[in-house]
Design a binder for these strands. Structure first.
Length: 466
RNA sequence: GGUCCCAUCGUCUAGUGGUUAGGACGCUGGCCUCUCACGCCGGAAACCGGGGUUCAAACCCCCGUGGGACUACCA
């Protein structure tokens, strides 16, 4: 049996977007599952729109997602000699011909045909003229005009096209560069790609490509067209639906595991399972389980998955991830402290950005109180409790989560008050907010000294403001 | 317009002739509780419509309807 070889072939005309990432992911999973080889090829034959920055951005995003490749990146534009040779071969064999119709004339004819309610396909003006190469001429493929071409698709099943629907597509442009449909066939064939997995916006191109494979004498690979990703309005996902760049999600504080897990569940399922690690996916992924219908991108569920992975990830590892998100003051903080802060915040953060935002009070030199919080809880009746607690803490030996809980409870019991009577004022004193991690966790993380200092500061504040 | 694809809760989906149509996100009631989360228990919520085939159809067939893609000297 032939070794499985797949490829991801983005065009470097922008960042790697969500849809492309999922296509890459499906390719990668299928290949790793089959122990095949995954090739990366940059389709940069559009000289106008391709940029190096885009190429780099795509590579970065692939790496961030953990989608490594075995060969490449190859650059299609560096292979034009190959393409041109094969174009010449087709011309010699009478399977392609020069065409001198100008884009303007073609556009005109298209409009007319549309207006008359006819198919806007190339009318074959130059098909039998046997023209030679001239300035501005292009090369067209002489397509079959009868019969049918069947695409045997691994996810959609057999799709049949009447060849008369297919017109003579341009395979080499006036500038001497091959067009997509030609270059992709040549490269996939020459790179021994066995399975072409791509978005289903390509299904209509596939019969022409099959004809090209056959004309060139190449084996036709297997095809798998995965459905599109749509926005909330069911239109193809685009910028107006929100962030579509993979790296934008990194910047917004998403973990790659979350994005991968979310993306794979768009159009693919394994029973009722929702959570998958990359290695687990490699084990269970199959193209047969890919659905046929398009999926709407749902940011809420992504957020849930991200929260899940933030909760599940070890604080040590999150420390690393958090480096780009912490406020500036954290730079000098010691790793032990940041680890504790992360542990406190893990169940309460849906993104790393959120986590950083809710961590600021830990590092504040002079804690600011939220006005409503201070007004409600930093009242004279709380001051005595705060002072007494601060006075007792130094002697309290067991300064752990459990120890503090015990300390607070026994204090409340002794004073015959509810725990919450002192918990909220303490919370405001220590965090400046009414919402925070558990008061015991906060105290442990902050440490005795800062706790005492902040409680005194709150008592002073009460005295000064009443 | 033509060609092609698609169709189960709002969304992602399980389901391949006989199920109280299952799970997840979101929404929602409750429990837990020092606040907020987490967690746990419960609820509302779907087979696009019409014809067939069959003892029996979400599942098979046909026709509608709706959505999407393509229709470039873009990929």
């Amino acid at each position: 049996m032939k070794k499985i070889r797949t490829r991801f072939a983005p065009s470097p005309t922008g960042y790697l977007h969500i849809g492309g990432a999922r296509t890459a992911l499906f390719n990668w999973l299928f290949t790793r599952h089959e122990a095949g080889e995954f090739i990366l090829r940059i389709e940069d034959t559009d000289q106008e729109r391709s940029t190096e920055e885009s190429t780099k951005a795509i590579l970065d995003a692939m790496e961030w997602l953990g989608l490594n490749w075995d060969e490449g990146p190859y650059f299609q534009a560096e292979r034009v000699d190959l393409h041109r040779d094969l174009v010449q071969k087709l011309i010699k064999e009478g399977k392609a011909y020069y065409c001198t119709c100008t884009p303007e004339v073609l556009e005109e004819k298209r409009k007319k045909a549309m207006a008359a309610g006819k198919k806007p396909k190339y009318d074959g003006t130059c098909r039998e003229k046997n023209l030679g190469k001239t300035a501005g001429s292009v090369v067209r493929f002489r397509g079959a005009q009868t019969g049918a071409t069947v695409v045997e698709d691994l996810v959609k099943g057999n799709i049949s096209f009447n060849n008369e629907e297919l017109d003579d597509l341009i395979i080499e442009r006036a500038d001497g560069y091959p067009t997509y449909n030609f270059a992709v066939v040549v490269d996939d064939a020459l790179m021994n790609i066995t399975h072409v997995i791509r978005g289903d916006d390509h299904v209509n191109n596939t019969p022409r490509q099959i004809l090209l494979y056959e004309a060139l004498g190449f084996d036709v690979p297997k095809f798998a067209h995965v459905p599109m990703i749509l926005g909330a309005d069911k239109a193809r996902l685009s910028k107006r639906h929100g962030a579509t760049s993979v790296m934008a999600y990194k910047e917004m504080g998403y973990l790659p595991e979350a994005l991968v897990n979310y993306l794979v569940r768009l159009g693919w399922a394994h029973g009722d399972q929702e959570i998958f690690s990359l290695s687990e996916l490699v084990e269970v992924f199959s193209l047969g389980a890919v659905g046929k219908s398009p999926a709407v991108f749902n940011p809420e569920k992504l957020l849930w998955l991200n929260a899940h992975y933030i909760r599940e990830t070890k604080p040590e590892k999150l420390c690393e991830e958090m480096k780009n998100f912490w406020p500036a003051i954290v730079a000098g903080a010691d790793a032990d402290l940041t680890k504790k802060v992360i542990a406190d915040l893990q169940t309460r953060s849906r993104t790393l950005v959120e986590m950083a935002a809710s961590a600021d009070f830990y590092f504040a030199e002079n804690l600011q109180y939220e006005p409503e919080a201070a007004q409600k809880f930093l009242q004279p009746e709380a001051a005595a409790h705060l002072k007494e607690i601060a006075a007792r803490i130094p002697a309290w030996g067991n300064f752990t989560k459990e120890g503090i809980e015990e300390f607070l409870k026994s204090y409340a019991h002794e004073k015959e008050i509810k725990l919450k009577v002192i918990a909220q004022p303490l919370r405001v004193a220590l965090t400046g907010k009414t919402v925070s991690p558990g008061i015991d966790e906060v105290m442990v993380t902050l440490g005795k000294d800062i706790v005492i200092k902040r409680i005194h500061a709150a008592a002073d504040w009460i005295a000064a403001n009443n």
